[in-house]
């Protein structure tokens, strides 16, 4: 094989240029730009429910429905309160009529009147969207209508949702439902419009007993974050691996 000096130089220059060309696809960032690109959000919203403080008044459910324009008399709600009564014969009575919207004002559960002498333990458990770190509902969305924001809240794009209902099936906590007016999937979003503007979620504000509280997990000085990180808290259905971010104080094995 022979190679003239001219051909050698030509190939060298050509080869160098060709290998440098793909570099132009990279952008050179300034230090600040690079920091901003990899910076994590300074907020991670979480929720703390103290089941020992909940008295089952249902004012949170009422406030949520009004605040988030969920039809008041439709059997759907973004948050609800469950009542658990374990009697001395070992039976667990559970109910949540209309999601506890009108509170619990009688001792009758599903047509069974329960005398206070028969009760071993009894309590209320408020439930809402867990804003999971690995949300199953987001994974199954075929159109990208539901997604996780940088601050951890899972939102539903009402313009984009096609109402297929996959997410409603996928959520292990049953927090999603079909919105009767908008005809799209709907769920609790920690009142994103309120927490983003420095307010508390409607259910937190309307709870007179401090049973519901919102926390920013990335702020170590947040008193609610301190409770979550230092007290014994539990989450619902940990075994699903969804990494729920609603933490419960005083949770019982009967609560699923």
């Amino acid at each position: 094989m022979t190679c003239s000096r001219r051909a050698f130089l030509k190939d060298t220059v050509g080869g160098t240029l060709a290998s440098v060309l793909p570099l132009s696809a990279f952008t050179i960032l300034s230090q600040d730009e690079a920091k901003a690109a990899i910076a994590e959000s300074k907020v991670r919203w979480a929720f703390l429910v103290d089941t020992t403080k909940c008295v089952g008044c249902g004012l949170c459910v009422k406030a949520c429905k009004n605040e988030n324009e969920i039809p008041y008399d439709a059997p759907v709600t973004r948050t609800w309160v469950e009542r658990y009564v374990v009697t001395k014969d070992g039976t667990t009575h559970i109910d949540s009529p209309m999601g506890g919207r009108d509170g619990f004002i009688t001792d009758t559960i599903r047509d069974v009147e329960i005398d206070s002498d028969e009760i071993d333990k009894a309590f209320f458990v408020p439930k809402l969207c867990n804003q999971c770190d690995n949300p199953a509902c987001v994974q199954v969305c075929p159109v990208g209508a539901t997604y996780q924001t940088d601050d951890g809240v899972v939102l539903v794009d009402r313009d984009w949702c096609i109402g297929c209902g996959y997410c409603i099936m996928a959520c292990p906590y049953g927090v999603r439902f079909f919105h009767p007016d908008h005809k799209v999937a709907d769920k609790c979003n920690f009142c994103y419009h309120r927490i983003s503007n420095g307010m508390q979620p409607a259910c937190v504000e309307c709870c007179s007993f401090g049973a519901r509280r919102i926390a920013n997990l990335k702020d170590p000085d947040d008193p609610v974050t301190k409770t979550i990180t230092t007290e014994r808290v539990a989450v619902l259905k940990d075994e699903y691996g969804t990494k729920p971010h609603v933490f419960y104080l005083g949770l019982d094995a009967n609560v699923r």
Partner: peptide
């Protein structure tokens, strides 16, 4: 946008639309 394709595939302006939802209480 956000974490990855699985959790962050969406229309970005929807976040602002939710932030602008009217406050009642």
């Amino acid at each position: 946008h956000g974490k990855n394709f699985t959790y962050g595939y969406h229309r970005l302006s929807n976040i602002q639309e939710w932030k602008d939802f009217p406050v009642k209480y």
